[in-house]
């Protein structure tokens, strides 16, 4: 394993893995955690993505930090790919879909069109987040504060309630071994509730060992499902940093 870790030095060295996606059970419901960071509920034909942070680049540009203006294209491109793979009937964007209140105004015509074509022929639900609390109606889809389907409640900010799937925290995990370390986005779950990784191209991350996660999950008896290059890796949170 030492040797392997050197070649693929950003492939997590620990944890068991399921090829491609991994199964995540939340409150008795089996979901597929996709390698892209999306969550797919097969029975419901529902795809969930969180924290797209569209137009984060231009948001920074407004303040003089001229980040490359390709983040929306990149994020929508990855979203299109995962939608093509699962062809869901319904899509939930779990909040902070836009980086700031005016971000949707800055969408280019081409990006707006790309978004529309993703929304065509499927239900699209924008959950509002703290970055985008008041989305306009002309974006297509419907806007909601939260959505409950069966035993699962989808909302942006995690409250710690049982059966909750949330985003907001941008979980990432770092695994260190023999003086090397790898840091990746991850799903976090303890079987009763889950926090999704951020999907946006420029979205940063918060360590799952931050107190914010302890508040939701209690003691670190929860698992990180770390997004590797080719697989997800389920690693005990206590093994991560």
């Amino acid at each position: 394993m030492t040797a392997r870790a050197q070649i693929l030095d950003d492939e997590s060295a620990a944890g068991c893995a399921t090829a491609g996606g991994a199964t995540l059970v939340v409150a008795g419901v089996s979901l597929v955690a996709d390698l892209s960071g999306a969550l797919f509920w097969e029975e419901q034909s529902l795809l969930v993505v969180s924290d797209l942070h569209l137009e984060k680049g231009s948001g920074f540009a407004m303040r003089g930090v001229l980040l490359p203006p390709f983040d929306t294209v990149a994020t929508l491109g990855r979203l299109a790919a995962v939608i093509a793979r699962h062809d869901p009937r319904r899509v939930i964007a779990l909040g902070d879909s836009f980086h700031d209140r005016r971000a949707h105004d800055r969408l280019s015509a081409a990006d707006r069109e790309a978004l529309s074509s993703l929304q065509a022929r499927r239900d699209w639900i924008w959950i509002s987040g703290n970055h985008d609390p008041a989305l306009p109606s002309d974006l297509g889809g419907v806007v909601a504060a939260e959505v409950a389907i069966g035993p699962i409640a989808f909302r942006h900010e995690p409250s710690g309630a049982s059966g909750e799937i949330a985003g907001h925290l941008h979980p990432k995990a770092r695994v260190s071994t023999r003086g090397r370390s790898v840091q990746r986005r991850c799903f976090v779950s303890d079987g009763e509730r889950a926090v999704m990784p951020a999907f946006g191209a420029y979205a940063g991350g918060l360590s799952i060992r931050d107190a914010a996660f302890a508040k939701i999950f209690g003691t670190p008896g929860f698992m990180a499902h770390v997004l590797g290059d080719h697989r997800l890796h389920a690693i005990a949170a206590s093994r991560c940093y």
Binding site: F70, A74, G204
Partner: peptide, 20 residues
């Protein structure tokens, strides 16, 4: 409070404007 990661910027820029 890191606001964004240059690694992510590198990935995006490399893909969309490799001769930047």
């Amino acid at each position: 409070q890191v606001l964004f990661s240059t690694d992510l910027i590198y990935d995006v820029l490399r893909k969309h404007q490799p001769d930047h």
